[in-house]
Design a protein around this nucleic acid. Structure first.
Lengths: 185, 185
DNA sequence: CAAATAATGTAGCAACCGCTACGTAACATG
DNA sequence: CATGTTACGTAGCGGTTGCTACATTATTTG
């Protein structure tokens, strides 16, 4: 009868909290189970395998972050492309979103090593992010699709710079974008 | 005194090759030792601890990549900022440099989780890269320091996009940077 | 040559990893 | 009440982790 998921989302929520604090790539079943107040045995029971668990967990995290983004920064168009980038960067540096940024870099790293689950989840995150950013660009932006991709790629770079402690390099990069993108006003 | 370190660089070279293929964050002592034709025991003997080993290994990798960059793409100024970015991106997508890109994302991920060694090595890499890029910008680039930071941050974003399979997003981002400089790359 | 010192090998510890075999409840249905 | 299905705990397997105590060999030095 197929009542397969009684409280899987509760489990996923608890495990997501754990992963946001302790990282994704170093997470193992027993600590995850402890965070969710279960046993490793039950996690395998519910999700089939660790890979399955990680897959669902990534989807859950992506959904939570997307929802958090939308509610933290309601749709509004920026004056400048660089302004839109700055707004999103400032948000991602918030204590509420910094954990997501760290997990995001974990996902990217694992995807780069060939992790299929992480690659799929990463593409999903990027697609959602592209939509989010497109809606925040100035109304009259030419080639909004390409510009959104430029903005997002730059934001990814900022997250890399922040992670290794080159935040000022990121800030100066955004500043350097301003004169270039304001052409055509 | 006598002979404290006979062939550490040979060990580091062999381990670097292994890491470039199999990743950094998942590397453990015994496979590393096998790659260097020693034992885990000897690695600890030479480097004191795994953390010490990783530290020296990262320094070695950074030096190797910097040397490879300089020799693969001898100093020459590009016509456009976007052109300079494209040249470096094309190089990093080469089969010779893609492994470095993957390890780089490993470093970033670990640094984001608080890895001091990775953070230090990462800053070193960024500084070298900034110099490299600054020398490749068009001669008359205004604010070259800031522009180099913009270019590098964008390149980091491209590496993220590539890792999760959004290479076309990266390409379109670079294209969006171009429009105001003279066309014809 | 002998003693001291450095370099390397052997064997293993204690902890952790993902995962599974197995036993036991709870519960719905005949 | 019997039976079958689902939910969950216990115990542990085989493997890997970083690291170490100890023994042995090689090299230098008095």
């Amino acid at each position: 009868m197929a009542r397969p998921k009684p409280d899987r989302t509760a489990l996923l929520d608890a495990m997501a909290d754990h992963v946001l604090v302790h990282g994704l790539n170093t997470a193992s079943l027993r600590p995850l189970a402890q965070a969710a107040e279960t046993s490793d045995r039950m996690l395998i029971y519910h999700f089939g395998s660790k890979e399955g668990l990680v897959g669902e967990l990534l989807g859950h995290l992506a959904a939570r972050m997307a929802a958090g983004l939308a509610s933290a920064l309601p749709a509004a168009r920026a004056v400048t492309v660089a302004g839109a980038v700055g707004e999103v960067v400032d948000l991602m540096r918030t204590s509420a979103f910094q954990p997501y940024a760290r997990v995001w870099l974990d996902i990217v790293s694992a995807a780069g090593q060939g992790g299929q689950v992480q690659r799929a989840a990463g593409q999903q995150v990027i697609d959602g992010f592209l939509d989010f950013i497109t809606g925040r660009l100035p109304e009259d932006t030419p080639a909004p699709e390409e510009t959104a991709r430029l903005a997002l790629t730059l934001i990814e770079g900022v997250m890399v710079m922040d992670a290794i402690g080159h935040r000022d390099t990121a800030d100066r990069a955004i500043a350097a974008l301003a004169p270039q993108a304001s052409r055509g006003d």
